[in-house]
Simulated assay, not measured.
Amino acid sequence: MTNTLAARAFSLLLSALLAQTALAQTPSTAAAADTSSILQEASRLFREGRSFDAKLLLVPLAGRDVPDALFAVGRIEESEGMYARAAELYERAAKQKHGPSINNLGALYAEGLGVPRDPARAVASYREAAQLGSADGMVNLALAIITRATTAQASESPAELVERAANLNHPVGMRLHGSTLMLDAARQRLGFGWLEKAAGAGDAPAMVDVALAKQRGQITARDFEGAARLLQAAAATGLPAAKRELATVYELGLGVPTNTAEAQRLRREVEIAERAAASRAQAPASQNAPANARPAQSSPGQPNLTR
Rank of each mutant, 00 (worst) to 15 (best):
H177Q: 15
N3T: 02
N167C: 05
A281P: 00
I272G: 05
I102N: 07
Q153W: 08
S179F: 11
P303W: 13
P205N: 03
A142I: 03
A285V: 13
L57I: 00
A135V: 02
G106W: 10
R267A: 11
L181D: 07
I145Q: 12
L56E: 00
G49Y: 03
E160K: 04
A285E: 09
N288H: 14
L17E: 10
R85L: 01
F71W: 04
A241M: 14
D34S: 14
L305M: 10
R189Y: 07
A69C: 03
A130E: 00
V139L: 15
Q20Y: 13
L252R: 07
G74H: 00
R164D: 11
A278D: 05
A201F: 09
T180V: 11
A7Q: 01
N167H: 13
G253D: 14
S36A: 09
G173L: 10
A201P: 08
S11F: 14
N259Y: 11
P300S: 11
Q40D: 04
V139C: 14
E77C: 05
S79R: 00
T4N: 08
A6P: 08
A120Y: 01
G133I: 08
R75H: 06
M138D: 03
M1I: 10
A228I: 01
G99Q: 07
K95D: 10
R268P: 00
N288V: 13
T29S: 05
S157I: 09
A124V: 00
G255Y: 08
R148K: 05
A69W: 09
G202P: 04
A211D: 11
L39I: 06
L212I: 03
A42F: 13
G112W: 06
A9G: 06
T258L: 14
A110Y: 08
E262C: 05
A124D: 05
E78C: 11
T26R: 09
A19W: 03
T2S: 13
Q264D: 10
R148G: 02
P257G: 02
S15C: 06
N259D: 12
A291H: 02
A233M: 09
E80Y: 03
I76A: 06
Q218I: 01
V249T: 09
E274I: 02
F10M: 05
P67Y: 07
A247D: 04
R265F: 05
L89W: 07
Y83T: 01
N167I: 00
R50N: 06
D34A: 15
R268S: 10
R244N: 08
R44A: 07
Q20S: 12
P116L: 15
A185Q: 02
H98F: 12
F46P: 02
S125R: 12
V172H: 09
A206M: 06
S11Y: 06
F52W: 08
R92E: 09
V162E: 06
A54W: 01
A276C: 12
W194P: 02
R127N: 02
N259M: 11
R44E: 00
T220G: 03
A31D: 03
K197C: 04
L230M: 06
Q215M: 14
A16V: 03
A30V: 15
F192Y: 15
A94L: 02
N169C: 12
I145M: 15
E41L: 14
P171S: 12
Q131P: 02
Q297L: 14
P158F: 02
E262W: 07
L23D: 04
R64T: 00
A185M: 06
A227I: 08
N304F: 12
